[in-house]
Nucleic acid binder design. Structure first.
Lengths: 235, 235
DNA sequence: GTAAAAGTATGACTTTTGTCATTATTGCGA
DNA sequence: TCGCAATAATGACAAAAGTCATACTTTTAC
């Protein structure tokens, strides 16, 4: 056995990163440690697929993951991004349905699997966890509804500015001050809900307007206020 | 006192219509009956406003309500519709934020108000209710994400067909077989996420294609299969 | 280390959808 | 019941965004 691999840095997930599992009691924490199952996923691998039945929830220890729905012509719509500390697959598990989206690895990841039975057991006996899950779902719902309205009402350019600010917020910045993620133009397009070419064009517009810099695959925001203004966010 | 007005048909909300409050115990049911507060709202009235702080949840006894977000140029995006048996305002209450949408009455309504304290008290002591709320939120989230993807990927015509099928499903049909709601073209536009004129045009296209009939303000679906095909839903 | 594949960039053009203007039509209140 | 206001309908046009073609660049795999 190699315990340092089986439970790599999950204490971090719980305490440092402050996800819903912070609410677990001592005994639940150790039950989780014995029940969970961590694995490594390489870039491009699928963690779960739209249409599959969930058998538990996933907790991301490390890496970057996208959850997307596939439209008719195979175009992906990215619904959510996940990084260390985030949990995945709870929506479908809770509503007892098949996954409505696919989780795919953008950067090599370590992910723990917590079996359905364990998770529901915690949920039924720990009202703090229930409460945290309700808040998580409420937050996701708020987010989804805001994006829905934006998609219906805002032009691509505004949504693009918004997406860049979101990516910066979510991933933070590397040593160069660029968004700390190697995200393709296509993925950005699939977040914003537009064509890849349009994404490329708007990014070069932003570059010409000195709002961003393009450092290879990395994007650096050089004028935050300008982007905020472009996104028409005034609060 | 006039008990027949204070608690008009709430037993129906609970048992017949099967909302989350089915999970309440006997004593909680009577506690709710004494704590709740029912009122009548006329068409056009606002039940709560985007930005306000929630003080409880609302349970719709009768009537038709829309929840929408207002975009920059004052355009409404309808997020959800509610009818008898539905509850309102739980998302913001649970996440402890201001309302992210406005609830406005489309057809005269009777609505009960359940104070925050009572609701949270039930939630903490009744794990069946917690569970039901989690399922409700999960369902809403799934719905929102599906609409998000549709908005990003499907043309207006498909979304319109989808919306008509949804309205039929949600409101049922009246004696003429038409959708049992007097919903304006503008409201339909704000559900679909398009301009009112585009809505009018597509509805007359659908009429010419013998998919629907327009009986004054009412819409009758005469070719369900055709609409399903137009919406590109194949499951 | 090199070739193939994937990703990025740009131009030309088309399609979709929105906007504005104008005219019916309906519903409702005085 | 009349007339006003809101809603619905339609046309002409403009703008936004998508598609297709092609070139160039970077990554990846052998």
């Amino acid at each position: 056995m190699k315990p340092q691999f089986e439970h790599p840095v999950c204490d971090e997930c719980r305490s440092k990163l402050g996800n819903v599992f912070c609410t677990l009691t001592e005994s639940q924490t150790s039950e989780m440690d014995s029940e969970k199952n961590c694995s490594i996923f390489k870039k491009g691998q699928i963690i779960f697929n739209e249409g599959n039945k969930p058998a538990g929830v996933y907790c991301v220890n490390k890496g970057k993951i996208k959850i997307y729905q596939t439209g008719e012509e195979g175009k992906e719509q990215i619904l959510r991004l996940a990084k260390e500390g985030d949990i995945l697959g709870y929506r479908s598990l809770i509503s007892g349905e098949a996954y409505s989206g696919t989780a795919s690895v953008m950067e090599d990841a370590t992910v723990c699997f917590i079996p359905k039975r364990t998770f529901f057991d915690f949920l039924h006996t720990n009202s703090d966890l229930s409460s945290a899950m309700m808040q998580l779902l409420s937050h996701d719902l708020k987010e989804a509804e805001a994006r829905l309205t934006g998609l219906a009402q805002k032009p691509v350019r505004e949504r693009m500015a918004e997406a860049l600010l979101m990516l910066f917020e979510f991933y933070g910045s590397d040593k160069d001050g660029a968004i700390n993620a190697a995200i393709s133009r296509e993925d950005i397009a699939n977040i914003v809900g537009t064509a890849t070419e349009t994404t490329i064009r708007i990014l070069s517009d932003f570059k010409n307007e000195k709002l961003i810099e393009l450092l290879g695959k990395k994007i650096k925001i050089v004028n935050h206020q300008g982007l905020i203004k472009t996104a028409h966010i005034y609060d």
